[in-house]
Amino acid sequence: MPNATPSTSYAVEARDLHRALPLGGERIEILNGVSFAIAHGEWIALTGPSGSGKSTLLGVLAGIDTVDGGAVCIDGVDITTMSERNLARFRNEKIGIVFQSFNLIPTLTARENVEVPLYVSDRAGSIAQRAKEMLDLVGLSDRMNHRPHQLSGGQQQRVAIARALVTHPTILLADEPTGNLDTKTGTQVLELFAGLRRDLGVTVIVATHDGQVAARADRLLYLVDGRLQQPGNGHVTEPLREPVRMHGGR
């Protein structure tokens, strides 16, 4: 797969990704030859032990982190060769990001937080109207004038999801999106993801330790020590070039 030609038939294509960081006098491999392809509209769970490289991989897919080798292609476009300016514009158009810590601006209302990505977008139309539509989509039309401290954790996460989707991205990346939520609220967020994928055709990639989240996915990417592995009963097998399909996946 490392020599494959990027294809627009894939929403995301990772080819032989390598990322290392210095630690003392050594370099620690965070990603070590990771390759996979994700079709449009798939829901992928990115799992593995703490320190396995999940957050780094998610950052690389988002174009936030860099790689030492390999390529990431989004809709057939290699983002690893882009300038910072072009990458920022491309990311704004194609990729929505949801963080565990919400990352809302405390002095802005829910509507104003959702509006932020639109100020660097070329999309026509009313910014305020678009933000209102997205808040309505996530069930917060009655909270759009509330600031983050006036919202519950689940409501703040839904504002973050609305903000991630307001530019109509084709890919939604989420890092532990239920990590700061109780079980009931986490389930509501997962139902929201499922509805967004069904209604908008969004490709969903979620990094998680939560088995409930992973069980919702169509496929599982399991990372150990920066390599894709096949999950087993207490052990891992040889690295895989393609992700393993989960039993019972939707």
Rank of each mutant, 00 (worst) to 15 (best):
M1S: 10
P6Y: 05
S7A: 07
S9G: 06
S9K: 12
E13C: 05
H18M: 15
H18F: 15
L23D: 13
L23N: 08
R27M: 11
N32L: 05
G33T: 01
S35L: 00
A39D: 14
A45I: 00
T47L: 01
G48E: 06
G53I: 01
K54C: 03
T56D: 01
T56Q: 02
I64M: 11
I64A: 11
G70W: 01
I74W: 00
I74G: 03
D78G: 05
M82T: 04
M82R: 03
F90D: 12
E93N: 13
Q100D: 12
S101E: 15
I105N: 10
T107K: 03
R111P: 00
N113P: 14
E115P: 04
P117I: 08
Y119Q: 15
V120R: 09
V120A: 12
V120E: 13
G125I: 11
K132G: 12
L137V: 09
V138Q: 02
G139R: 13
N145C: 01
H146Y: 09
R147K: 15
H149I: 08
Q150N: 08
Q155N: 12
R158A: 06
I161C: 14
T167G: 11
L172I: 11
A174T: 08
A174W: 04
P177G: 10
T178G: 14
G186P: 03
L190Q: 05
E191Y: 12
E191H: 13
D199F: 09
D199G: 07
A207R: 00
T208V: 08
Q212S: 13
D218M: 05
D225M: 01
Q229R: 14
G234R: 08
G234I: 05
L240Q: 11
L240S: 13
E242G: 09
H247I: 10
G249M: 12
